[in-house]
Design a protein around this nucleic acid. Structure first.
Length: 646
RNA sequence: GCCGAUGUAGCUCAGCGGUAGAGCACUUCCUUGGUAAGGAAGGGGUCGGGAGUUCAAUUCUCCCCAUCGGCUCCA
């Protein structure tokens, strides 16, 4: 008999060789029907795999991320099995589970898969799934494994196996399909009830662009058709919220081939929105002791040679701008930090002046690879809500806390309720590859973690993710559809102060090296507006909406009253426009709803007589009428409350 | 940059070896209205660009450009 310990620390006894599935059965039939995988003594384990010794066990169902991973990993095998049957002679790379489903990289040889093939593969997968094929785990020795895949002619698997240690190699077989795999897998294929292959893409073997490009097939599976349907609805919803679509519909921004790819143009309404965001942040930054600056869009090449960016990124950037003058070269600025370093250096700084906080909405230009461009989220020119804080080493923690406060205010005002942080620290095994003194790093890393704890910010630590020049803290928000986006960032930099030989005079009358902190609560205006658009589906908070109110006269007879109303509202800084079209009121309401204006004011005979407005809120029905004064007061109050949601 | 797909009116899209169509939007007229599409008429396209095949190319082929889905990269 062996002792099995459950997550609640209770212990039960079982025969040696019992499987997690057997254990589940002993608890309840229902659980047994749903167990997809398990963790045994900290190792991922098949539900059907025997346990030979005392163990701590955790059972996973579809509701656990681990259960989903097992399901999707098994689905990848199922898809490979289907593809192998449909298309002879294909070779397989790797096929893992991912956040939302799975993929398999396949060398299809002379065959080109198209979207149309995906439907056939889906059908085949469902056919195989219904056969209730068991996933059988087999231990193999390296020599046999190599021989098996060499005979099959699958050089990708051979390469993978040759890198594995003998004695650790396992196959999983389902039906006629055998794959190199460490598992775990679901008990059998019948759990896979609904299949959707989502897309086809090219992917380099092992992510190396010098190697062969394989065809990557993405898919997702579910234990119930209903869940697939729900997932497809979610995808539809995401499509509706696509910021590129909303950006056009709401007339916020545009792109133009003549201007150039990846170069967004902000339209009047988009600009109004962006300026409002900038003003909001500027005001907060003033409270937090920032000084606003403006620097040119280009900088001398030598600036970037000194900063080190030229060596690092110069070859993959926009080419230098030359002038009639021999040897004179400028670069479009890819970041604002070198300029700001010059501002710090411009006059002697005392320890009493620190920290110096220099802020700029700085537009930068980066030559992103053309295939990487995407709406407003990946562009070649964007404006960072940048600031650089030059401080003493003992001030790092306090500065982090202050920046975190700003980010919190911003996120709250924009209704991002869920956010968390990722702390990126050095690779503990290799301190060599980082610049800056070891003790400073240690101090800053500790400061960041303490700051998170003090602010009660949920954060997880990633080792080895720090930049070579310093540790950082990134903010991830979850939007209304539960998607995660990386927005704000705070980064410590030991590199630039060194390269630009920045210093301040300490109390000891000696020169000291300041610590530089880069930070951008929005990240970039472009990216932030994109995320905000998708988060609120274009229904901006009232304070931000480019147009807050639309006045809908019932007929042309009331146009005069509408115009007077508009100017009256303007006195209270309420942004209102009038639908002057010769259309019926029902039509005007419909169109105003589609344009997502927060408030509609219907005005006709009655309103004119009473100097009142009939109010309708976007997405709601008639709210009844109120006096024009009461309406203006209500809007002003609401805007104020939204902005002060701190 | 690489793989694949796409590119037809401002938008969403249909069509096709015989040089274009719908809906919405736009303009004008009629209607002057009360909480999600009133009616009529009209204007608008070198069918992404270039070359080739053909009696004839928006349609077929090739090359470019842009967009989309991925890969890679991200100071």
């Amino acid at each position: 008999m062996i002792n099995i310990t459950f997550p609640d620390q209770s212990v039960r006894q079982y025969e040696a060789g019992v499987s997690p599935l057997d254990i589940a059965k002993s608890i309840s039939e229902g659980l047994a029907r749903n167990v997809l995988a398990a963790k045994v003594n900290g190792k991922m384990w098949d539900a059907t795999r025997a346990i030979g010794e005392d163990a701590e066990i955790q059972l996973f169902t579809w509701d656990d991320p681990e259960g989903k991973a097992a399901m999707w990993h098994s689905s990848a095998h199922l898809m490979a099995a289907a593809i192998e049957q449909l298309y002879k002679g294909v070779k397989f790379g790797i096929g893992p589970a991912i956040d939302n489903g799975f993929y398999y990289d396949i060398d299809t040889g002379d065959i080109t898969l198209t979207e149309a093939d995906l439907v056939n593969i889906e059908k085949k997968m469902l056919e195989l799934a219904r056969q209730k094929q068991v996933f059988e785990r087999v231990d193999v020795c390296k020599a046999d494994a190599l021989k098996h895949f060499q005979d099959k002619g699958d050089e990708y698997k051979v390469e993978l196996i040759s890198e594995l240690e003998d004695g650790t190699i396992t196959y999983y077989k389902n039906g006629e399909f055998t794959d190199l795999c460490r598992g775990p897998h679901i008990p059998n294929t019948s759990f896979i009830k609904a299949v959707k292959l989502t897309s086809l893409a090219g992917a380099y073997w092992r992510g190396d662009e010098k190697r062969k490009q394989l065809t990557r097939v993405y898919g997702i599976t579910f234990p119930k058709q209903k869940e697939l349907d729900e997932y497809l609805v979610l995808l539809e919803e995401a499509k509706k919220r696509d910021h590129r679509k909303l950006g056009r519909e709401l007339e916020l921004f545009m792109f133009n081939d003549l201007v150039g790819k990846g170069l967004p143009i902000w339209l009047p309404k988009g600009t109004a929105l962006r300026l409002r965001l900038q003003d909001y942040l500027t005001k907060i930054q003033q409270e937090y002791g920032y000084e606003q600056v403006i620097t040119p869009h280009i900088g001398g090449k030598q600036l970037y040679v000194t900063s080190g960016h030229w060596d690092h990124y110069g070859a993959d950037s926009f080419r230098p701008i030359t002038t009639p003058e021999e040897g004179e070269e400028y670069l479009l600025k890819p970041m604002n930090c070198p300029h700001h370093c010059q501002i710090f250096k411009w006059k002697p700084r005392s320890y009493k002046d620190m920290p110096v906080r220099i802020a700029e909405f700085g537009t930068v230009y980066r030559y992103e690879q053309s295939g990487e461009l995407h709406g407003l989220t990946r562009v070649r020119s964007f404006t960072q809500d940048d600031a650089h804080i030059f401080c003493r080493p003992d001030q790092v923690k306090d500065e982090f806390i202050r920046v975190m406060e700003i980010i919190e205010i911003i996120f709250k005002a924009l209704d991002f309720k869920n956010f968390e942080a990722q702390i990126s620290l050095r690779d503990p095994n290799d301190h060599e590859k980082y610049v800056g003194a070891d003790e400073n790093w240690a101090k800053a890393e500790a400061a960041i973690q303490e700051a998170c704890i003090e602010k009660g910010l949920p954060a997880h630590v990633e080792y080895g993710e720090a930049a070579f020049y310093g540790p950082k803290l990134d903010f991830m928000v979850k939007d209304a559809l539960g998607r995660k986006w990386q927005l704000g960032t705070i980064q410590v930099d030991y590199n630039l102060p060194e390269r630009f030989d920045l210093s301040y005079i300490g109390a000891d009358n000696e020169k000291h090296r300041p610590v530089m902190v880069h930070r951008a609560p929005f990240g970039s205006m472009e990216r932030f507006v994109a995320v905000l658009l998708e988060h609120c589906a274009g229904e901006f908070p009232l304070w931000l909406a480019p147009d807050q109110v639309i006045i809908l006269p019932v007929s042309e007879k009331y146009m005069n009253f509408a115009q007077n109303l508009q100017s009256y509202l303007k006195k209270s800084d309420i942004r209102a426009l009038i639908d002057e079209r010769n259309e019926k009121i029902g039509r005007k309401i419909r169109d105003a709803e589609m344009k997502k204006y927060p408030y509609m004011l219907i005005v006709g005979e009655k309103e004119e007589a009473e100097n009142s407005v009939s109010v309708r809120r976007h997405g709601q029905v008639d709210l009844g009428s109120m006096s024009t004064e009461a309406f203006a007061e209500m809007i002003v109050k609401q805007v104020k409350e939204e902005q002060e949601k701190r």
